[in-house]
Design a protein around this nucleic acid. Structure first.
Length: 503
RNA sequence: GGCGGCGUAGCCGAGUGGUUCAGGCAGGGGCCUGCAAAGCCCUGUACAGCGGUUCGAAUCCGCUCGCCGCCUCCA
């Protein structure tokens, strides 16, 4: 069974499913008020990998991730653009899912919207008022943190020291500076919902409590998100659940953030790169690989250099696929079972030792860097076997590597970046294109504007070069290679003829 | 002020009380190739500094320096 760091205890602990053979997981999703950036991409990828790995381990995962579509920032943005909050939320929710699809992040089983749960939130707030853990002020309803046992758990800091450090003074009627809004009374021009304690809108933290309990039930297995959510967001969720007498998650998992020059990537610092920008200029898989190369709890430095690094490493994986046709192997029914049916690995004759090693590393607090190092070792062994003429062994290892990559959500030789065009038959080449299209199916939509298949002109150059080589006209062949290079293609001669790939 | 994290070879980035310097990228040499590309082989003797514990520490403890984060919205 996998062991994961639990922010509530500060230790790496086994994840014990509440219900046998299945895992209930709630991951805090985005507030849709702007374009998603690399930081959002990281948390989405981290939990996508966790979800895939749990499934790979034979568990059924009930994955819920919310969309926060009512919030101060959405209201502010709508006001500044002169459109409705609904417009803003709809626009950026679409951006969100587009980016997720491009990154190959599997859709959660459910993606509840805060605005669909306002009635439940009103009920929850009423419950907290009734029990005396919440109180009303002129501008809303607040939760009294003093009423919550052990408040500060997820901040890993006791309440008194948290309070001492509070930079913002209690806003007039708040009993404690740490108290937070459960309900904000209506202000002119803002969206409102009816409530017995005055019409208004919900605070930020209540939605996750209500939605996770509704969809996953009390004491669900995993609650995740970025480390900056640990406090106050998650602690405030926990506080409310506690006030309601309804336990929330048993395991709190948080990922580290993306840094730029050592500093946290944040919109407020203006040092962010949007996912769109990244996806427009690189293979979406390379960001996944970059994320996998560091441990999920560590900060991740993203620069042009580290991004390029990851792309090169990805090229090494693709090269293996190219050599052994692993991508072609992992199709259809086999593809569907990859990463979701560990038992099939045995039936398919994959390398059991490599898979066992991979799993033990992943089980150790989702140690993807170590797991990936193991995959690269398998890659090397596959090449060695191939060089020795041990084709079957080479294929077995290559297939194993492909299988493990699939478990991580990495599809080898996928996308235009890895497109290789066999020399003979444009039809074959077109087949390669269809292959890439299937990737799109898996992702939900076709990835990005990055790269595109070779056009007729390029294919003509490839064919001409093959003729030149057949005639041993090396200078002509070299000139054509140069032309292809200028067009952005790297040439590789193989026993099957000239192949090209995006440089 | 309180709480917490980090500092590893050219770069990124794991790991751990003691055999082969995780892995990737970059670099050097060789093999392969018409030349390349891809691949393989060889090549790096790093763990901020200072003390301490230990037969032995980069790994444990203490201190110092530097960087970052949370305590306010934040993935």
């Amino acid at each position: 069974m996998i062991r994961l760091h639990n922010t509530a205890s500060g230790k790496v602990e086994p994840v014990v499913p509440r219900d046998a053979d299945s895992i209930s997981m709630y991951v805090c999703g985005p507030t849709v008020y702007g374009e998603p950036h690399l930081g959002h991409g990281r948390f989405a990828l981290v939990f996508d990998v966790l979800r895939r790995y749990l499934e790979f381990s034979g568990l059924t995962v009930h994955h819920v991730s919310n969309i926060t579509d009512v919030d101060d920032k959405i209201i502010a943005r709508a006001a500044s653009e002169g459109v409705t909050e609904v417009d803003i939320a709809a626009r950026y929710e679409k951006s969100w899912w587009d980016a997720m699809d491009a990154l190959g992040v599997l859709r959660p089983a459910e993606a509840p919207h805060a605005t669909d749960y306002v009635e439940d939130m009103v009920e929850a707030v009423a419950g907290m008022l009734a029990s005396g853990s919440a109180y009303e002020t002129s501008d809303g309803v607040y939760l009294s943190v003093d009423a919550v046992e052990g408040y500060g758990l997820l901040a890993r800091q006791p309440l008194d020291t948290l309070r001492a450090g509070a930079r913002v003074e209690a806003g007039g009627e708040k009993r404690s500076p740490m108290d937070f809004a459960l309900w904000k009374r209506a202000k002119p021009g803002e969206p409102v919902w009816p409530a017995p304690f005055g019409e208004g809108r919900p605070g930020w933290h209540t939605e996750c409590v209500v939605m996770s309990l509704d969809l996953l039930g009390e004491g669900f297995d995993i609650h995740g998100g970025g480390i900056d959510l640990a406090f106050p967001h998650h602690e405030n969720e926990r506080a409310q659940a506690s006030a309601l007498g309804r336990p929330l998650a048993r395991h709190w998992v948080h990922n580290g953030w993306v840094t730029v020059g050592g500093e946290k990537m944040a919109k407020s610092l203006g040092n962010y790169t949007s996912l769109d920008d990244l996806l427009a200029r690189s293979d979406p898989r390379s960001y996944r690989l970059l994320v996998l190369r560091s441990h999920y709890r560590q900060p991740l430095e993203v620069t042009v250099r580290t991004t390029k690094d990851a792309a090169e490493a990805l090229g090494r994986l693709d090269a293996l696929s190219r050599r052994f046709g692993a991508a072609g192997w992992l199709e259809g029914e086999v593809r569907q079972r990859a990463g979701v049916d560990q038992k099939a690995a045995g039936e398919l004759g994959l390398d059991a030792a490599a898979i066992a090693s991979f799993c033990s590393r992943m089980d150790d607090d989702l140690d993807t860097p170590a797991a990936l190092a193991g995959v690269f070792e398998v890659v090397r062994q596959a090449h060695v076997a191939g060089d020795r003429g041990e084709t079957q062994r080479g294929e077995q290892l290559a297939h194993t590597a492909d299988w493990l990559c699939a478990a991580l959500g990495l599809r080898l030789e996928a996308g235009a970046g890895g497109a290789w065009v066999p020399v003979r038959g444009g039809a074959e080449a077109a087949g390669g294109g269809a292959h890439a299209g299937e990737v799109g199916t898996e992702r939900g939509t076709e990835a990005s504007t990055y790269g595109s298949g070779p056009d007729e002109e390029v294919l003509a150059l490839v064919e001409e070069r093959d003729r030149a080589r057949a005639e041993r006209d090396w200078s002509r062949a070299d000139a054509l290679r140069d032309e292809l290079a200028v067009a952005g293609w790297t040439v590789e001669d193989t026993p099957q003829g000239t192949k090209i790939r995006r440089t």
